[in-house]
Design a protein around this nucleic acid. Structure first.
Lengths: 337, 337
DNA sequence: CTGTTAGCGCCTTCAT
DNA sequence: ATGAAGGCGCTAACAG
């Protein structure tokens, strides 16, 4: 049986309120402080967080809700957030909705029922209306990676349009004119933005926009694999390709290997995220990278600001980070046909 | 302000104990049940888990403590465990100790202070003495992947020795005699076992054991990269290699690409885990695979058994799963020198 | 089957 | 600076 204030009381003869004050930073006689500390040692006393939470209504726990845990991008961000939040006394409860809107809603309810103090989420449902439930319970929400059309709140995103721009710019500079994109399904915030940026960049560079080369597929390695085959089996395949997320890039590379299509001689390729991939694949890939650590820390900080009440309740802040192009050897001028 | 039993009481006129019974599965008049349900709807009532925990001493939360979140192996297992546990009403609080014993100890304390009902961990500290603290607080512990020398408890592991055996068997069958292993640091449970299994298998196959070819390195891509270079820059390099974990495999493949050493003509390679890798790399890698989903589910189930009290407190069960060899194209007979 | 009551461990006025 | 007392929301005897 765990020790309580009463046990400390028995040890020290002090009253419960003095003991409480010790744990909540009040002033007290040095002698008493030391007596309490001695009793804590002796009893291996730990404050009971249930009791504390019952009064304070705080669990010092943040719910993290994401579409899929098996995603380098999400995992990397979660790892950084976990470290940052724990350093501030907060633990994270993770829920993975497995790319399913109903599960996402259930998971949110689950987290709220677990009395989390806040929710940090990569919303799967584009509209994000499920998040209204959190607001109704007065639990702050911070979005990562994607905005929700029907739910305004603090968010950390990257300049997704520029991903398309960076890729097109690099490929166009190498002399490519027939460019394709393999993006995720319509309805995914980041994928739509990257697609839009890509199309706008084509226009800006006065390159042809062939809707057959603006392909969407699942955001999985399998999706990238299938998408690439469809793209390259066309009578008139592209000479330059941008893969709009990590898993799609992975699948595309697998398919290219299988089809015996050589990078960059036969196809110039630009992928996204995960530097490790770029080094593993031969030749090294040129990538558009997101600053994962910055994203993680700033999401965590936005949440801490909310929880510490240092921010206007009504305001909503959006932090947007730029993307960077990391050059490998997967882009070269197109073959002369 | 969230609704409480008292609010339901006002709505229904029923007593607190009747309402409590509703939530804890007692019998009651159908009329009363319906009245309560109606009130719950109207008030958007949720049971306060702080108050409930204060009485029951249960948070329905499991602490998950791992060496590193950025590890496909750990992430995959966590994703499966999360799903399985949540389906049973349990959430998981994740802590990553970043390959640091002190942080591991701190994280354990953190989790216990968060009132978790149990700890599922891949212990980083080989001895696992820090886990005694959990036992002292009567919090059950389930180990994954590694046993701890100084802490006996329920555990789920794989037959690590057989990894070495499978690899040596496959390479020997192809005619290789000069075999090397790239394993993790001495002191890591799995790495030691795989190394031992490898050496025993060499002896069983009557192959020479050259201690220079039994190499240990960090369990990271960088470790694999460096280890491979050291190995292949020797005057008399091996013709067959087993990489004893995923990250090491990754790093080794990167280094081979850079050095222009071709698989399998110049080196036959067997890696571990992560089927995706095997498909990405050209040629496809032959791999020793661990059944991640089984590991995850059985760890979760061991924990649930403990929490539901359906297991003797004193007993300790170890579940060991077999490994499988998945053939790719990275092994062929050695070149005639 | 339902109601009354006394805590679970901690925090917070309010006195002293 | 310290002590006494009530209550946070729920549960579990115990009566009725």
């Amino acid at each position: 049986m765990a020790a309580t204030y009463k046990d400390i009381q028995k040890e020290t003869g002090l009253s419960l309120s003095t003991i409480s004050k010790y744990f909540n930073g009040g002033k007290m006689r040095d002698k008493n402080r030391k007596a309490i500390e001695k009793a804590i040692q002796k009893l291996d006393f730990r404050v009971n967080e249930f009791a504390r939470g019952l009064k304070s209504r705080r669990s010092h726990t943040i719910g993290v809700l994401i579409p899929e845990l098996i995603s380098t991008f999400h995992t990397a961000i979660i790892a950084d957030m976990e470290e940052y939040l724990r350093a501030n006394g907060y633990g994270i409860i993770i829920c993975d909705c497995h790319l399913d809107r109903d599960r996402e809603r259930d998971a949110l309810t689950f987290l709220l029922d677990k009395m989390v103090d806040g929710i940090i989420t990569v919303p799967y449902d584009k509209r994000g209306e499920h998040l209204a439930l959190a607001r109704q319970r007065e639990v702050p929400v911070v979005l990562i990676d994607r905005l929700a059309s029907e739910f305004k709140t603090d968010a950390v995103i990257t300049d997704n349009e520029s991903a398309g721009e960076l890729a097109v710019g690099e490929l166009a500079a190498a002399g490519h004119r027939r460019l394709a994109i393999l993006s995720g399904p319509d309805g995914i915030y980041t994928m739509n933005r990257r697609m839009e940026g890509f199309v706008q960049a084509l226009q800006r560079h006065a390159l042809p926009v062939d809707s057959e080369l603006l392909m969407t597929t699942e955001m999985t390695a399998e999706g990238g694999y299938n998408g690439l085959r469809r793209l390259m089996e066309r009578p008139d395949p592209p000479t330059g390709l941008f893969c709009a997320n990590y898993e799609i890039t992975l699948g595309a590379v697998i398919a290219l290997n299988e089809m015996g299509i050589h990078i960059p001689d036969q196809l110039s390729l630009i992928g996204m995220d995960n530097l490790m991939l770029s080094q593993l694949v031969h030749p090294k890939l040129t990538l558009v990278m997101q600053p994962m650590q910055l994203i993680a820390q700033s999401a965590a900080q936005l949440m801490l600001d909310r929880l510490q009440g240092s921010v206007q309740a009504a305001s909503s802040r959006t932090v947007e980070f730029p993307l960077t192009l990391v050059r490998g050897d997967s882009v070269q001028p197109p073959a002369l046909v």
